[in-house]
Design a binder for these strands. Structure first.
Lengths: 345, 345
DNA sequence: CTTAGCACTTGTATTGTTTGAGTGCTAAAA
DNA sequence: TTTTAGCACTCAAACAATACAAGTGCTAAG
């Protein structure tokens, strides 16, 4: 259990270090803190905090920086989200103010806004109700040999892909396939569809198509894409700012990570009511060792909940970032409610 | 006019420097060159080459490196494309060997292959005949309020986008709009369509839709996307390897450049029969000062011609790269001919 | 419990030294 | 006229020595 004074010191160490990036020493703290004690006293307290593993030295005679545990204690007990800067609120309002014609535009735009506000990398995920089910499938002929496959889920997700078919394939055949899919698969959850697709469907399709493999490839393709949660990423390039010692390799693995939807989903974790912070190696992924991730859900009533997240250096100014994330989740929820209200009514 | 010996020296300087990245001195050359002369003689020749602006020193007593003019002379007169390594050909054949269901897959895959072979960044552009014309437009209702807009051009490009419409919009209204678009705009080139879209179309649409702006936005959107040439990029991350002194800012502007289709189109230039090389500041764009770009067209008979390109550091091994690009353009053309043959017949 | 004082540690910056690769120039050899 | 050996000179890179500033832990007194 920390004393009031220790908390004050820990808070100051974290705040100073996240702002300046320089280890903070006892003298500077003594000058800055509201209580009037000498640097020697601070030193004693700092020794105690170090004993507890909350702060550490970069070398034997340096100032202290927070350890991962120190950051953890700070975000759990000491930090208080900053109120949003007026200017930031303006940015949000105006960027989100325009007219949108689809949910995804709003969500993708949100990633950009969030990355601009924070100058970090941002992720957004659109609101989701539950395991979605296949609600419709079409094949739309577009020309001599081009066909577009469209897959719709009951949560309103749409995936599509054009592909080429041999001219010997007739419209009737395509119709038959569409009917088959819709008869057999509509209403099932996507994982169930995938399973059936590996079981009896191929044989049935073979009744209508000479070489069903091409079609199965395409259908499987749109299907897996529809089954994946789709994250939007904003401010990718901001990661470059923190590539300390410009370690190209770790930067590369970081970028590969970001582009793998599955991995991101994994890192971000499951929705959860609070705003949550993951610090440095609390995340299992090695590429994220020097990063922290702030995730939050937002709630759109009967339309489900989505997530937003920002990824920045472990030494990010948490109070400000928590303020931004907190405010943004609310603005986004409001905007989406408006949107649904307009198109639903 | 260079003497035989001077050419030999210039060639060796370029080859050595592109391989090692270290300025090359007279002694090393004397040892390495097939002719038997002393380093002093080499020095004299090098002084002459420097006088001509083909090579230069990094500091007053350093070895020489090629200048942009030196590279230029080298690629114009001295270089001879390396034959492909057997292994490289295997990679091409196997990566391109699978079954594809659309042109774009082949082209996008090509960018990846090319970047793997070179470990640089690669661009590919699909074959194109001429200014394409609008050949069809549809609105496909997908659910209560979702509609997909699909635009097809006579060159086989398809662009689509889903959007939400207010429930008060009826299927009849949508049909009317589709008919209007198809009546008025099909057959025009895309730029012409854009022009008409700013002129009389909005008024006509207002006859059918209460608030046409939403629809016009969407249509304009798919239209501009269709009008843009679409480049595929492979090996983006490879750029990180050459960020000398890890200049974050120039790296950022480089990445922004790469993601702006228009700018890339500009840099790559117009198709042209030869394989062409642009070196360092020969490209006007400042972000490319330390890079070279090799572009080549490939020809698919009556289906038009496309482009491939690789972007790497100015000190790239040109002979090897020219070999790869040359071989790849041919393999790609072959593959595409096969593809068309299969789906056309 | 707090504080002043002091010896000690370490990173950073500066300066000087050495080494090695390379150059230009000159004068002799071919 | 061209080539070559020899030599003085330049510069980057690596290394060592030094001083400095910021910070620490510890002790003894308040």
């Amino acid at each position: 259990m920390l004393s009031e004074r220790q908390m004050m010191i820990l808070r100051a160490v974290v705040r100073d270090f996240t702002n300046t990036g320089v280890p903070v020493g006892s003298k500077a703290l003594a000058k800055q803190l509201p209580i009037h004690v000498s640097s020697a006293t601070i030193r004693n307290e700092m020794a105690a905090l170090e004993e507890l593993g909350l702060i550490k030295k970069t070398h034997s005679s340096s100032g202290r920086i927070p350890s991962v545990e120190g950051y953890r204690y700070y975000v759990d007990h000491l930090v208080k989200p900053d109120p949003l800067r007026p200017n930031d609120m303006d940015v949000i309002q105006s960027s989100l103010g325009g007219d949108f014609h689809k949910i995804d535009e709003i969500i993708s735009q949100s990633a950009t806004i969030l990355s601009n506000l924070t100058s970090y990398t941002a992720f957004t995920l659109k609101p989701e109700l539950k395991d979605s089910r296949l609600s419709g499938f079409r094949l739309v002929p577009l020309g001599k040999r081009q066909v577009m496959a469209i897959l719709v889920t009951d949560s309103g997700d749409v995936e599509n892909q054009t592909f080429d078919v041999n001219e010997s394939v007739t419209g009737d055949q395509l119709e038959a396939v569409v009917r088959l899919i819709n008869d057999q698969l509509v209403g099932l959850t996507l994982p169930e569809v995938v399973k059936k697709l590996q079981a009896d469907i191929p044989m049935k399709i073979a009744n209508y198509l000479q070489s069903p493999q091409g079609f199965l490839d395409i259908f499987g393709d749109v299907l897996t894409r529809a089954a994946q949660e789709r994250f939007y990423v904003g401010g990718r390039l901001n990661l470059l700012n923190f590539s300390q010692d410009s370690d190209v390799d770790s930067l590369k693995s970081l970028y590969s990570l970001i582009d793998k939807t599955d991995d991101i989903a994994n890192v971000l974790g499951r929705p959860d009511d609070k705003i949550s912070v993951q610090i440095g190696n609390e995340m299992t992924n090695d590429a994220l060792r020097n990063f922290s991730l702030i995730t939050a859900t937002y709630d759109v009533d009967q339309h489900g909940r989505g997530m937003i997240a920002i990824l920045g250096p472990t030494r990010m100014p948490y109070s400000r970032m928590l303020g931004i994330v907190g405010a943004f989740r609310e603005e986004l929820a409001k905007k989406l409610l408006d949107y649904y209200r307009f198109y639903d009514e």
